[in-house]
Simulated assay, not measured.
Amino acid sequence: MTHPAPRRSQDVRTRYTELINALQAEGDHDAARRCAALAVEQGVWRHPAQRPVHYLPSIPPRPVYDPSAFWFTAHLQENHAAIRAELDAVTDPAGQGFLPVEEPLLGKGRWEQVTFYEAGHRFDDACARFPVTAAVIEGIPEAAHAGSGVATLSWLYPGTHIVPHCGGTNARLRVHLGLKVPEGPVMRVGEEWLHWEEGRCLVFDDSFEHEVRHEGTEPRVVLLLDVTHPALDEHTRDAILADRASFEERVVGFMRRQGIGRVEIDDDAVRLFADRSTASLIHRHLREVGASAVELRDGRLCYDEKILHT
């Protein structure tokens, strides 16, 4: 069955994405699949498992690629031993700049990463901690300065589940170089189940629904890189890179969306202060319920030591 070329706006894609994600979060995966199929029928996407908000319909929907088709996979694999030697010196991930990934993608378990690049922005501290790895990344321009995604070391602990999700754009591909690969971790991309191998690369389109499960006993570590999709024409690629927001602009946008007016870091502690509008809202609510403090736990508001269902 052939589907019509996508013709819907980004706003429509965003709303379908939110609905599908909400259905999955509630555990109604059948309804989520039916909704994704309806979206394809309505010309939102071309494949029900590929649901990015930023979508280029000219790129064929293909979930997994042959690593040997890309020059940089040989570059990464040739440098595997040097990267692994640098990684083997890490006995305390937190002390070496690995930070927890705490977001809706983490269904359970523990997931940490150290980021070298994000949307072309170089994180000097990470590169100084891992100079060998940073040098290898910088030898791949489409993943470093000219990249639109991230370059990280991803440390996944046993018992972790990264829930099914779709990346935000199909304008790039994701590359994994296996560094520490014990028995147990597996990744699904679309309908394909992939296994990592130490010293070998995987290449896939993360705009397809994918998830990771680690049922082993030792951490899995990969070098993760986003690279520009080779199917992009030069004009589209340049337009995407020109539209990249600076890191400062992204932080400003995040703080505005979250109602944060100020952030302070004291050692490992992070303190967030609400902006004026958000602070006023919370203050009014606490006054109404007669409480002096509130905390969000498992989707419920907790006032002092009393849990109120809202």
Rank of each mutant, 00 (worst) to 15 (best):
P219G: 13
V175S: 00
F72V: 12
L87P: 12
L308G: 03
F204G: 10
R7V: 10
A231E: 15
T310I: 04
T17C: 13
A39Y: 01
I83E: 02
A245H: 09
L223C: 02
P164L: 04
A32V: 04
Y55C: 05
E78T: 12
H121E: 11
L23A: 06
Y65E: 08
S148V: 04
R213V: 04
H229P: 02
E209Y: 07
A171G: 14
C127K: 11
E118Q: 14
L308E: 15
V136Q: 02
A146I: 00
I137Q: 02
A37W: 03
V132P: 00
V189A: 06
R8M: 15
T217F: 02
G290T: 06
R122M: 12
V212L: 08
L38D: 11
V222G: 00
F254E: 09
E26M: 07
R256T: 13
T160Q: 01
C166G: 07
H145G: 09
A22W: 04
R129I: 04
T115M: 04
F254R: 14
A151R: 00
I83P: 00
R213H: 15
S207M: 10
P93D: 09
G190P: 05
R297V: 09
L296S: 13
K306P: 09
P104E: 09
D66K: 02
T160V: 03
H47G: 09
G167L: 05
L173Q: 00
H29A: 14
G299D: 12
R300G: 00
L87R: 11
A144G: 13
F123R: 01
T169H: 05
W193Q: 14
K180N: 11
A135E: 13
E26L: 10
A239L: 12
H235S: 13
V252L: 13
A274N: 11
Q42L: 07
W193P: 06
V252Y: 13
R244P: 01
T91F: 02
T160N: 03
Y157R: 11
P100F: 09
L173K: 01
L76I: 05
T133E: 05
C127Q: 09
F123N: 11
A5T: 15
A25E: 14
S58I: 06
A242L: 09
R34G: 10
S207W: 10
G167P: 05
R213I: 01
I307C: 10
E78N: 14
A85R: 13
I307R: 15
E142K: 07
L301N: 10
L106R: 02
F98H: 02
P141G: 12
M187T: 06
F130T: 01
V203C: 11
H29F: 14
E264S: 11
A245L: 14
A85H: 03
